[in-house]
Amino acid sequence: MNPEETKEFEQKIHAFVGRENGPPKKGKDAVNEPMIRQWAEVMGDESPVYTDKETAKNTTKGGIIAPPSMLQAWSMEGYPMAGSPAVDVQRSLHNVFDENGFTGVLGTNTSTEFFRDLKPGDEVTYHTVIESISEQKSTARGIGYFIETVTQFTDQNGERVGKQVFRVLKFIPADAPAEASSVADDSPAVPTRIAAPRGHDNGWWWEAADKGKVLIQRCKSCQTLRHPPRPMCGECQSVEWDSIESTLDGEIFSFTVLHYPKVPGYDYPLCCAVISLAEGTRIVANVVGIDTEEVKIGMKVKGKVEQVDEKTMLPQFYPVAGGQ
């Protein structure tokens, strides 16, 4: 969008501010036990006041109540949302965003107040007003606008039972995957660590790691050890080399603990260290088996090659007991 188009777009969306989404509307179902039970099952709500009539009677509630956090559920449109949702004012507003490329939608905040517990038989009426639309924001998800709506919930007697402020982000997806996977795959995708690309000069090292060994490259001509591997010896320019296996006895030369950003496939806080090996070369690897706050420069460590996720074998170093 050029600046004029942006201006026109913003005028269009701001015209929605202050409008009611529609007249007050009654929820499709009265508060009822089956829906409460289903909710409690999924959410892991253990309280007997949601599901156990007899026990609930003997509490201060005097009988079954609906979980307070379920309030908004009594106002949901339900199945039509999946196909042809009713075109209310809020939907028209979203359509204006969609037409302009802001196809992403994400709930970002809710603030819900509960004025009384709801019991089976209560009938909830809801009334939503579009409260505000932010200026354009640059977010982690992409460029977008926050839309804030306020919904008042009342009961069959017109008494207020709750109020909810709801904030959603409508945004231009920053990097939509080019092609949606067409294979039905319901297995959880557990991310793995970023793999080292393997080439002519380093592939042999990673293949040894896959078999549980850490090797150190050695010049066949002058016996100098080197890591990370390189095709030529910097001391004597020989391209002939073999390797020795490291004992993985080491000492922490420097380290850092990573907190943010959290890259999928890694556990945080994550300790990475430069380790001086007994053989005289250094290696970068994780330090594990210790509270990251306790890691110190100079600490003695011992490594072993471990499977750290489904696909990755890596040297991991552990503190040596009493090895300060």
Partner: peptide
Amino acid sequence: LLTADAIHWGWYMPYGLVTPASWVAMYTQR
């Protein structure tokens, strides 16, 4: 990455040492 640089980063990425802040931190702690 599919550059010659990839091999170099390969010594660090699997361990999670992937951001500029983390590389500079290693010198800083020392």
